[in-house]
Design a protein around this nucleic acid. Sequence first.
DNA 1: CGGGTTATTATGGGATACCATGGGAATTCA
DNA 2: TGAATTCCCATGGTATCCCATAATAACCCG
Lengths: 155, 155
Amino acid sequence: MAGFVSHFTNRLDAKGRVSIPAPFRAVLARDGFEGLYCIKSPHCAAVDAGGNELVSQIEKRWSEFDMMTPGHDALAVALFGASENPKIDGDGRMTISDMIREHTGITDQVTFVGLKYKFQIWEPEKFREYSAEAQKRALAMLSGQAPAPSRGEPA
Amino acid sequence: MAGFVSHFTNRLDAKGRVSIPAPFRAVLARDGFEGLYCIKSPHCAAVDAGGNELVSQIEKRWSEFDMMTPGHDALAVALFGASENPKIDGDGRMTISDMIREHTGITDQVTFVGLKYKFQIWEPEKFREYSAEAQKRALAMLSGQAPAPSRGEPA
DNA sequence: CGGGTTATTATGGGATACCATGGGAATTCA
DNA sequence: TGAATTCCCATGGTATCCCATAATAACCCG
């Protein structure tokens, strides 16, 4: 109904496990994907995660490339080679792999951020920085075409 | 019948709950959204809240941007990552989250302000200030072109 | 017109269910 | 066989559900 929305920060235990926020688990269950699909975000120090909806979105992008070009294989390597399928245990937890650790800088806490059709996995402090910047950027992007905005746009 | 109008101030109980004004609940029920959609207002110290109408308005703006651009994810983070979906209990109450507290300065009272297709959540004193300012600005805006007279808005 | 009665609403509080987290035991892999 | 993983259960804290009460507004009926 609502996709992945809002953000949550959970602790990583001694075994490297972390609880996936319950609201996100509910979305995943409805999506029907077994486990979780994870891929490095090309734009920032986060990992994109999701279920079938994310997978099909990625496959769609890939298939839009000409299959004959060498770039097709390269793209496949970039997309699927950089992916993982972590399991989700009975208590709704996943294990943070080395690949995720390296790409995000996660040590003892994890922030999950909903992006509707997918969610992102962040190191909390890095997310705070990115989020502040994203707010500014969003304001700039939206103010260009806002239908009925208020008057002045303060910083 | 006509969306969210008027404003109400309710008290926050020891558990951080507050009753959503009955007229607003009626609008939400008619809208059919499960729970409530909340997002920080970028322009002021308030939180925008609403149901499907607000959500679809936000989603529409988001989908107008090309999914390939790096800004797409940033926008999603700003729009959905910074949002929340508080539940509404059987008595028509919601819980004020830390995010709402921080952004609005709410401590023990909450003012709900109807804005037709959505409503805002304010700290009462901050709203009074903003409201006074808004009156002046509205007057200035209208005085240049308003054909219809009077229609004075009381405090 | 007025007295009484009911319905709705805001608020308080207790009980319960859910969730994040920790740790032990069993299992798998190298 | 040792290390890491997976499964299962325990627990504390929080949020949710449910019921009680008071105040207000709407209503009814004499």
